[in-house]
Amino acid sequence: MIKVDKNLCLGCFSCSNVCPNQNIVREETEDKRSIHWKKCKEECDLCVEFCPGKALSLVPFDPACEEPTLTFDLVACKICGARYATEPMLRRIEASLPRELQKDSTGLAWIWVCPVCRRKIEAERATKQMVLGRSRANP
């Protein structure tokens, strides 16, 4: 049976992806995601091994114990407002990267911007000179 430490869980779905028996059920809506761990009697500990947050552990089966469910609010992109990640995941990335890589040249904390907007920012940055030059040549 799996025990979850809710202070360590990132809400990333890794466990649900690796579980061979569909015992970890995921649900995602526009602004929330939740994970539900069914009680299982398997000796398998794949989810424990592949938990990036080390939030899971294998404990002896206990029929009296309730099945845990964790729900995470999804963080809104600072630019477009689209919900794109759980806060613990973003915090984890913030912690895993060297300080100087957490901001880009414009000082923007890109971690708090969704991937779609990150691509747009990169495209704007890359084409800025070209757009200026062409606008100047042919106004």
Binding site: N17, V18, M89, I93, V116, R119, E122
Partner: peptide, 17 residues
């Protein structure tokens, strides 16, 4: 890969899916 999605969030250019 376990599909945790951390890489997607760790790419500054949004080009890991």
């Amino acid at each position: 890969c376990t599909g945790c999605g951390l890489c997607r969030l760790a790419c500054p250019f949004g080009v890991v899916w």
